[in-house]
Design a protein around this nucleic acid. Structure first.
Length: 433
DNA sequence: TCTGGGGTCCTAGGACCC
DNA sequence: TCTGGGGTCCTAGGACCC
């Protein structure tokens, strides 16, 4: 391995407990002891579970309809997700963490890595810093967090896992200050599948090699692991040994791809309805694109039938096309997307999902076809496409966005059993670029 | 009847060129 | 007519994460 060994750093991983559930509870304290889950779009499956529900064995992603009996028996309540709220709460947590150190990586909506070496001298020990962070986040945002501390990101993750799982740590676990024998004991009790970066497939293969726990993996030869699994696993082994291979990424790199997709609450068969959805997704993607001040050179549209019903006719297709030039213009992207959609759409299938992906590697896009010498959409069937055309003709370079409300993902909840009503409001905005 | 959405990194293998 | 090897670029797909 060529990776040079960097100076030793101490990482803290701060992770909000049951993030979405905890957010809901901040604003509805009466839910504190109610067994509850937060559901995905369409109220399809559980994307967050409180501690009581986890104990009952409900896994991440369990469909709500499959846990009806359990819900009845234990009084589990379900809440629709509110991502705007969670995004806001996430920002508040990060603001608190920044007060402790400027060197921080926002890893996900509910987790941040902190480099804590330089701020330690103000505290008795790392654990006491951890408790201060935990208390400060709780006091400021109302959210409960656990803190894991270690010499590598992977060890900080492991420490966080221990802090969450074992009450003895009171929510803060520093595996660096721990005697080695004690750490190894904890690792021997930690299933290898719990280690950061070991997923289902790898776990299975590791078990065949009689590697069952985090400690087993620590003892394995990194070189041998590279042979069997590749460079990612080799790094992981070093990380477990306290040799940091993964740096803190303080500045979030700009996204290489931007995706917007949704499942429909109900199967969709008409091109018009797919077009509505694809147009909305394109607008959303383009907003994200402009937010990071990027342009895209290629665009992918995909539509899929319901793969949970294998006995029904299946159609999964995507086409990626090059744009005539890099762009962040919603109108151009939407025109392109609708044109692609018409290519892949096949009447007769019950579509369950649609989406759009923008590829930002403008100089080397992944392209299957190059279609566009013009961007005009001429559709006689789709009212939406006609609208596109007329706006295009009138405003040329205008930016179009579809209204966020009334989009396909929510129609079922809002309109019950009534037929879906995909009325899109088109706002005509001034020229942006 | 009802089954999330958004990302990253790595590798193998084919195409192509010299 | 027969037959090469090495390098690079590109892409699909697998595996992982939250």
């Amino acid at each position: 391995m060529n990776t040079k060994i960097p100076a030793s750093h101490l990482f803290a991983l701060v992770d909000v407990n049951n993030f979405y559930v905890s957010c809901e509870r901040v604003f509805a304290p009466k839910l504190e002891n109610v067994p509850m889950v937060v559901l995905s779009n369409n109220d399809g499956c559980a994307v967050a579970r409180c501690a009581q529900v986890k104990v009952l064995g409900v896994k991440m992603g369990t469909p709500w309809f499959q846990m009806q009996e359990l819900a009845k028996k234990h009084g589990i309540q379900a809440y629709s997700s509110n991502y705007t709220l969670y995004g806001d709460m996430s920002g508040r947590v990060v603001e608190v963490l920044k007060k402790f150190t400027p060197h921080l990586e926002v890893y996900s909506i509910d987790e941040s890595f902190l480099a804590i070496e330089t701020v330690l001298k103000q505290y008795v020990d790392p654990t006491s810093l951890g408790h201060t962070i935990k208390q400060e986040v709780k006091d400021t945002t109302g959210l409960p967090v656990c803190v894991g501390i270690g010499r590598s990101k992977t060890l900080a993750k492991l420490a966080n896992h221990l802090a969450k799982k074992h009450k003895i740590f009171s929510g803060v676990c520093d595996v660096d200050s721990m005697p080695k024998e004690e750490l190894y004991q904890w690792m021997a009790e930690t299933a290898v599948g719990e280690v950061w970066g070991v997923g289902k497939q790898t776990c299975k293969k590791l078990k065949e090699l009689h590697i069952h726990t985090a400690f087993d993996l620590l003892q394995a030869s990194p070189q041998a692991m590279r042979q069997q699994f590749g460079v990612v696993m080799e790094r992981l082994c070093y990380e477990l040994r306290g040799v940091s291979c993964l740096q803190l990424e303080e500045v979030a790199p700009i996204k290489q791809q931007i995706v917007s997709s949704r499942s429909f609450g109900k199967p969709v068969t008409a091109l018009d309805e797919l077009a509505e959805s694809v147009a909305t997704h394109t607008a959303r993607s383009a907003e994200k694109l402009r937010a990071q001040k990027s342009v895209t050179g290629a665009l992918t549209v995909f539509i899929q039938t319901n793969s949970f019903k294998p006995h029904e006719p299946q159609h999964h297709q995507s086409i990626t096309v090059a744009l005539t030039g890099p762009s962040d213009n919603t109108l151009i992207l939407t025109a392109a997307a609708l044109k692609v959609l018409k290519q892949i759409y096949q009447a007769g299938f019950k579509y369950k999902k649609a989406g759009v992906m923008l590829s930002l590697l403008a100089d080397k896009p992944t392209v299957q076809q190059s279609l566009f010498d013009d961007i005009h959409v001429k559709g006689k069937s789709a009212g939406l496409m006609k609208a596109m055309d007329s706006i295009n003709n009138r405003f040329g370079n205008a930016v179009i966005r579809s209204a966020a409300s009334g989009t396909t993902q929510n129609w079922q909840m809002r309109s019950g059993n009534k037929s879906p009503n995909y009325t899109t409001r088109w706002d005509e905005l001034p020229i942006v670029r």
